[in-house]
Amino acid sequence: MEHNLTNTTPKQKLLIVEDEGEMCLLINLLLDGKEMEIEHVQTISDAVEYFQQQPPAIVLLDNRLPDGYGLDFISYIKEKYPATRIIMISGMDAAAKDVALANGADLFLEKPFNKTMLYNSIEKLLN
């Protein structure tokens, strides 16, 4: 019996909200080969517009952004798009982790992180 190997399931969307180009490039490289559609915005206002078009399955959210703090954006996402999972990424301060999780982030990844840490975080939230 032959199995159809064509995957008709739509790819999960992952939105990176990060203003550092090098960090976005790194995340894209780390996730290369993952069955995900990866998009990237640099500001909270661009993220809001993106969400209005099509909410992603997962958001990788940096804290320090040109137009505000990712920490403050978490509650907006949770309120309007409760199905979206949030991975907060930050390297600046340890206190951000507690606030991020208290505000509703699903996971917190401290910079620098590696491919395994990123993969495991995404797998955990998708399954």
Rank of each mutant, 00 (worst) to 15 (best):
Met1Gln: 10
Glu2Val: 14
His3Glu: 15
His3Gln: 11
His3Cys: 03
Leu5Tyr: 12
Thr6Cys: 05
Asn7Lys: 07
Asn7Met: 06
Thr8Pro: 00
Thr8Phe: 09
Thr9Ser: 08
Pro10Arg: 01
Pro10Gly: 07
Pro10Trp: 01
Lys11Pro: 08
Gln12Ile: 04
Gln12Asn: 12
Lys13Met: 08
Leu14Phe: 06
Leu15Val: 10
Val17Asp: 06
Asp19Tyr: 09
Glu20Pro: 02
Gly21Gln: 10
Gly21Ala: 13
Met23Ser: 15
Met23Trp: 04
Met23Gln: 15
Leu26Asp: 07
Asn28Asp: 09
Leu29Ser: 13
Leu29Asp: 14
Leu29Cys: 12
Leu29Lys: 13
Leu30Val: 00
Asp32Trp: 04
Asp32Arg: 10
Gly33Leu: 04
Lys34Val: 10
Lys34Gly: 07
Glu37Leu: 12
Glu37Asn: 04
Ile38Trp: 08
Ile38Pro: 08
Glu39Asp: 15
Val41Trp: 01
Val41Asp: 00
Thr43Ile: 04
Ile44His: 05
Ser45Pro: 00
Ser45His: 11
Ser45Lys: 11
Asp46Ser: 12
Ala47His: 09
Ala47Leu: 11
Val48Asn: 07
Val48Pro: 06
Glu49Arg: 09
Tyr50Val: 00
Phe51Lys: 01
Gln52Asp: 11
Gln53Phe: 10
Gln54Arg: 05
Gln54Pro: 00
Gln54Ser: 14
Pro55Glu: 15
Pro55Asn: 09
Pro56Gly: 13
Ala57Leu: 02
Ala57Arg: 04
Ile58Pro: 03
Val59Glu: 02
Leu60Trp: 02
Leu61His: 01
Leu61Arg: 01
Asp62Arg: 04
Asn63Arg: 02
Leu65Phe: 06
Asp67Met: 08
Gly68Asn: 12
Gly68Leu: 12
Gly68Tyr: 06
Tyr69Asn: 12
Asp72Lys: 09
Ile74Arg: 01
Tyr76Ala: 03
Tyr76Met: 11
Tyr76Gly: 02
Ile77Ala: 05
Lys78Arg: 15
Glu79Tyr: 08
Pro82Phe: 07
Ala83Asp: 14
Thr84Asp: 04
Thr84Val: 09
Thr84Tyr: 03
Thr84Trp: 03
Arg85Glu: 12
Ile89Gly: 03
Ser90Gln: 09
Ser90Lys: 00
Gly91Ser: 07
Met92Pro: 00
Ala95Ser: 12
Ala95Trp: 03
Lys97Ile: 07
Leu107Cys: 04
Phe108Glu: 06
Leu109Ile: 09
Lys111Met: 06
Pro112Gly: 14
Phe113Lys: 07
Asn114Ile: 06
Lys115Gly: 01
Lys115Asp: 12
Met117Thr: 06
Met117Ala: 13
Leu118His: 08
Tyr119Thr: 14
Ser121Met: 01
Ile122His: 07
Glu123Asn: 12
Lys124Thr: 09
Leu126Gly: 04
Leu126Met: 14
Asn127Pro: 02
Asn127Ser: 15
